[in-house]
Every structure is written in structure tokens, then in C-alpha cells.
């Protein structure tokens, strides 16, 4: 019997790293995006809202890039 334990370990580690990273980046993006509406309510300096929007944009862009790589992996014609 030839169980590929190392392949299983690799899958586990890669999934843990990438999966958690995506969710963390996305969560930071969601948090950053909610700064702007809050700033409008509390009369915070205008810069805080803009900074939040930019940070959120970067986070979502990073997630979109990873998703695009996922599509690249799924579609055999790209290989």
C-alpha cells in the first residue's frame, strides 16, 4: 500500500495557510470598508474614511487575484 502521507500533509499545510490567509485578508477588507460609513456618522476626520476605502480596495483586490489563480488551477486549458 502506498499512502501518500507527504501529499496529504502538503495539502493540509497549503490549505491551512492559503485558506486562512484569504479569510483574514477579506475580513480586514470588510472591516476597512465599514470605516467610511461610520466616519460619516461620527464627524471623524475625512481622511479616515478615504484611507479605509483604499485599504478595503487593496484587500478585495488581493482576494480577487487569489480567486483568479483558483480559476487558473481549475481550468485545464490554461495549463
Amino acid at each position: 500500500m502506498d499512502v501518500k502521507w507527504s501529499a496529504l500533509g502538503e495539502v493540509a499545510l497549503v490549505s491551512l495557510g492559503v485558506g486562512v490567509a484569504i479569510v483574514v485578508i477579506f475580513a480586514v477588507g470588510v472591516l476597512a470598508a465599514s470605516v467610511r460609513p461610520r466616519a460619516a456618522e461620527t464627524d471623524a476626520p475625512a481622511g479616515a474614511g478615504a484611507l479605509g476605502t483604499v485599504a478595503a480596495g487593496l484587500c478585495f483586490l488581493a482576494c480577487a487575484a487569489i480567486a483568479a489563480y483558483g480559476i487558473y488551477l481549475i481550468v485545464p486549458q490554461f495549463h
Binding site: E10, V11, S15, G19, I22, V23, F26, L73, I74
Partner: peptide
């Protein structure tokens, strides 16, 4: 996200 990553990682590795 966890499922997608695990599925893609396992089919790729």
C-alpha cells in the same frame, strides 16, 4: 473558502 482551497490543493497536489 476552506473547502475551495482544500479541493484545489488536493486535486493539484
Amino acid at each position: 473558502t476552506a473547502s475551495t482551497t482544500v479541493i484545489l490543493a488536493s486535486s493539484h497536489l
